[in-house]
Design a binder for these strands. Structure first.
Length: 297
DNA sequence: ACTACTCCCTGCCAGC
DNA sequence: TGCTGGCAGGGAGTAG
């Protein structure tokens, strides 16, 4: 499911429910998701207070009062939902038949809160590409899952010069390089396609073509860095993208999908002003890439 | 150190 | 109605 904007939206949805709450019980309904749960997973969480909900790249980070950190990745199809007072927080329109919904509920966090009482936060993941791990806050940044991650595209760190340096020497297609979490952390298939369109750059051009010393390369890397930041920030502001039946933790839908310029628009006209191109779907690295062959060069 | 490719898993949809 | 194949927001592992 989620790229950075969706994970950030999940984080914001869970924050008011989880921060400050005590975990009274963790129901772990299977031994593994993509990977086995760490040994003693639920025991380590039981009784702990949640001090903060954070995010790094596509990872959700649940900080606990004893210095432990629950690292959660949603894979392709993971989602959290909140249930309070025994009733789902999801609006009726998205209510699946109970049995179908619950079949892929893999972890249930039972929470107790001073002000607002009991709640459950439920992790559901049909494809089980998601996973959970435990770390210590003191060495969170050096944890194997997080250590190699690249620059966050939110914030001010990502600029043309930095991006050019990251892409230098790479003969891979620009699309593939941007999908690599060690370069820019948190981008996925949708937002890479959207950012390349916004920057007017072909997904097939080599990554290194943005890293040269010439004025052209400098101008391209600057354009792309700006495009990435704008697309990601706009998507976060829109609450992410809701494909298929994906909903946020509080049951509402993101709406960035209505602003896609290329993703899933094969055969439709390019929306760039003055461009007469038709959006095409190609396959790179086994994944769909959507682009305009006319204005993306 | 790169790059390319396969695989993990379930659900959904188009086409027959 | 089925069935089949292809596709899906990710990324680890392996081989070259």
């Amino acid at each position: 499911m989620p790229e950075l904007p969706e994970v950030e939206t999940v984080r914001r949805g869970l924050q008011p429910v989880m921060e400050g709450a005590r975990i009274t019980k963790v129901e772990q309904r299977r031994a593994d998701l993509r990977f086995p749960f760490p040994a003693g997973f639920s025991d380590r969480l039981n009784g702990r207070y949640i001090t903060a909900l954070a995010r790094r790249a596509k990872y959700l980070l649940v900080h606990l009062d004893d210095g432990a950190v629950l690292i959660s990745h949603l894979g392709m199809s993971g989602s959290f939902r909140i249930e309070e007072g025994g009733v789902s927080a999801r609006p009726g329109a998205f209510q699946h038949p109970r049995s179908k919904e619950e079949r892929h509920d893999h972890v249930v966090f039972h929470l107790e809160r001073r002000e607002t009482g009991l709640a459950r936060v439920i992790y559901n993941d049909p494809r089980r590409f998601g996973f959970m791990a435990l770390a210590e806050a003191a060495d969170l940044q050096s944890h194997p899952l997080l250590a190699g991650l690249g620059v966050e595209p939110t914030g001010n760190a990502l600029d043309g010069a930095l991006l050019a340096g990251l892409l230098a020497g790479k003969r891979a297609p620009l699309k593939a390089a941007l999908m690599d979490q060690r370069v820019v952390a948190g981008l996925g298939n949708i937002y890479v396609c959207e950012a390349l369109w916004r920057a007017g750059l072909s997904p097939r051009r080599t990554a290194a073509s943005l890293a040269g010393t010439g004025g052209r390369a400098t101008e391209r890397s600057k354009r792309l860095a700006e495009a990435i930041r704008i697309v990601i920030n706009e998507a976060v502001a829109a609450g992410g993208s809701s494909l298929r039946d994906y909903v946020q933790a509080d049951g509402s839908l993101g709406y960035f999908q209505h602003r896609f310029n290329v993703y899933d628009r094969a055969g439709e006209p390019c929306r760039k002003e003055g461009c007469s191109g038709i959006i095409r779907r190609i396959v790179q690295g086994g994944r769909s890439t959507f682009h305009c062959p006319v204005c993306q060069r």
